[in-house]
Amino acid sequence: MDPSVVEFLAEDQMVNIVPSFSCDRVFLICGEVGPFRAGLPVKVPIWLALNLRQRQKCRVLPPDWMNVEQLLQAKEEESQSRFFNKMPSEHYMVEGRLLLGIAAEDIPQADEIRTILKDIWDIRMSKLRSSIDAFIKTGGTHAKLDHLTDMEINSIRPLLPHALDEMFSLQRVVRTHIFLYISNIFLSRNNSSALLLHYFIIST
């Protein structure tokens, strides 16, 4: 998946805006938004909020989690823990990038928030890389990683599954070979049991 596809999915998250115009309810395929009353906060999808903001028709209210204190705490917890912590938003990176990119003036301490988000992203990515490495080295067959966001999963997507596929097919060769080797030992000693074993291998 392209990162822009993940961005598209994340744009459906809701955000509060204060419109500077009045308009009735608008009916859209994804649901209805509004009614807009100038000066009264209203909840809209991010994509609409950003479009209105670009046309100077509203002011964006930052999401609850987008403040320095809460993000600093999240960063602290993330660096302390060996595992992945739950992020305040499922698309923290995309939301942060979109809102801070277009509506930076509406968000207090935008530059600091941007830095902290980047820090959290880097910590989590390095954790992800080292856990993949440990997973491959130990030859595990399954792993459980909680609280990974879509963008993070997407960053390793074609590489990791394909590497696991290749590893599986290499391991399968070894396993089949051991079976056949055993059956050959039997073949040299006892014909009937070797045949039985052969059928067993073929049928399984």
Partner: peptide, 14 residues
């Protein structure tokens, strides 16, 4: 073969 693949994977990924 399996061992080599496992050990080199980190490097390839990095």
């Amino acid at each position: 073969l399996v061992q080599t693949f496992k050990e080199r994977f980190r490097q390839v990924m990095d």
